[in-house]
Design a protein around this nucleic acid. Structure first.
Lengths: 107, 107
DNA sequence: CAGTATCCAATGTGATACTG
DNA sequence: CAGTATCACATTGGATACTG
């Protein structure tokens, strides 16, 4: 992303969300949050643990999710959406409307 | 995408939109439609013509854009959003709201 | 102009093993 | 459990040249 350039907020959002698996991860946490690493891995069909790990770090860096560690044995780590990610819920609502409509027209 | 399985409309939309450059292409056409191949290539910074061509075909296959050829010399081809793609405008609105907010909290 | 062809680089996948 | 490390492999994307 370029520096010292006022970037269009839509392009900005697209940059934040466009890597592979990023949207499915956030959506899993929109449905219910927080979740543990294994829960996410099981729920998001097809993702591998190394990519899940990579994306979670990126999302944490961008303040969309937060990671909390509990000193249990075996270890527990929970990932939850931050309040900064709440605006994304409307995005998913619109994706839902669009999906419902488009599924019908496409047979 | 799996067959004979009722897929969640959100996952369905994500599948339609999650490939690299798909969202920037649609967004370019949300701003103004129709546009010619070269216009899209110039406007979408960083895209290469082969990827643009590939994505346009996919989007046409999914009925989100339509392609019209004019028998001029040199050739003119226009790409426009279909009415089926109109529901995506709300998605971009929400992406805009989110981007505006997130740009502020992230400095 | 509107693409296609080609070849190379980057990214993601899959399997497996290993650590705290 | 929650990851990281390592490779081999496949798929995707990027750069560039070229055609009708």
């Amino acid at each position: 992303m370029k520096k010292n350039v006022k970037i269009c907020p839509i392009d900005y959002s697209i940059d934040l969300l466009s890597k592979k698996w990023t949207l499915p991860i956030i959506y899993a946490l929109v449905k219910k949050s927080p979740k543990r690493f294994k829960e996410l891995e099981r729920e998001i069909t097809g993702i591998s643990p190394n990519i899940l790990s990579t994306r979670l770090k990126e999302l944490e860096f961008n303040h969309l999710i937060e990671r909390e560690v509990f000193p249990t044995i075996p270890p527990t780590v929970e990932y939850g959406l931050t309040e900064h990610a709440n605006g994304l819920k409307s995005v998913f609502n619109e994706l839902e409307n669009f999906g419902l409509y488009h599924q019908k027209i496409k047979q």
